[in-house]
Design a protein around this nucleic acid. Sequence first.
DNA 1: GCACAATATTGAACGATGTTCAATACCCTG
DNA 2: CAGGGTATTGAACATCGTTCAATATTGTGC
Lengths: 220, 220
Amino acid sequence: MARRGEHSSEEIRQMALDAAEAIVAREGYPGLSTRKVAAAIRYTVGTLYLVFKNLDDLTLQVNGRTLDALYDWLRARQDVNGAGSDPERAILVLANAYIAYAETETPRWSMLFEYAVQENEQPEWYLHKLGRVFGLVEAALAPLSEDVVETQRIARVLWASVHGICLLKIRQRLILAGNQDVETMTRMLVSNFLRGLRRVQDNQGSGIRGQGSKPIGVDP
Amino acid sequence: MARRGEHSSEEIRQMALDAAEAIVAREGYPGLSTRKVAAAIRYTVGTLYLVFKNLDDLTLQVNGRTLDALYDWLRARQDVNGAGSDPERAILVLANAYIAYAETETPRWSMLFEYAVQENEQPEWYLHKLGRVFGLVEAALAPLSEDVVETQRIARVLWASVHGICLLKIRQRLILAGNQDVETMTRMLVSNFLRGLRRVQDNQGSGIRGQGSKPIGVDP
DNA sequence: GCACAATATTGAACGATGTTCAATACCCTG
DNA sequence: CAGGGTATTGAACATCGTTCAATATTGTGC
């Protein structure tokens, strides 16, 4: 029996999160279990349930840490590769850094998405951490438009796409055609997307407004 | 006890897959269990293990069916919305149809990705079904280039991006900024990407070759 | 028709999971 | 040093995937 009061509940929380991270790094998200975490920190399951609501809560907190780590990682790469330059280069730096993180910390990164969240309500603190990461993309794109809302739009589209390519890289699922370099794919996406965007901006106002084609995708 | 020989093992297989689909539709992939499937088809777990290697095998076969259904769905939308027209419209039709499928059959569709495959070796038949779906994208893009390999590249990048946007739509995860219309986002991606591509093709040869910028994303 | 072999089907068993909560062991206060 | 308050436990329950000896059912040969 661990001596009573040996660790504050905050210490136990941190120890548990450390242990959980280690387990996930070693065995992936499916390998994470309350009993393993408890054993790793030399406590029993019961104690875990005094500190975490349940396993989902623990998972979410691990993911929160991952978001922080990801944010720091992206910032570090930004600083090294010159932040102030043009948006295209800034986005490429971010995208490559994102993909590099996913490759380096695959299990942790995967867990962000494998864990089926109750879509309903993620806690506010989690959304905040998410927003911090996302803000980096928006900041990089800011020079493209003075319209903040439109910048958000563009950022969302672009980052969803980068994420899609990242998924493609990590899970070998769609490997059919020749195994193509992911950095090349990313550059292809970013440069072509931004080029298309710029081209229209020069003439009209945005890459999206002013299309009057008839609706597509109506049910058969 | 089910009467011996009442169903051939192929019949049992189909019944089990039907039942599994129903369970997934109702409770999602996490709700799928061997005992539930067995109970639904009025057999016991043991029988299931005579027909499927294990739960992973059953899962993979359900996913195989989903890929077939997705293929048919996409084809149907293509036929209705005029296939032969320009690549941009063709891709938009496909993308919107893909997203519509994900929305309509969310649990089934999610299961395609939630299920953590052993990346090592997916069976040949599964890769084939996957390739059939993917081929639709390549076919739609074929007019853009005579180079088949380059078409594959473009298809992969573009579809990974569409998939990323689809993910964004389905899992509410990244909802931070204003809730933006997904069809608009898709159109934004596709039209800008293809516009950027076209612009370069007119001058050089591709949207990707000929960039000589120094490497990006070096470790700090 | 009947016994026997062949086999389709069962379900108990095992180890693992998340979660709960009465029982316990410990520390601090008086 | 006695007692109360509480941190910690771990057995219990319901689930899970998976296995395999036991059993029920059928078809065959006589």
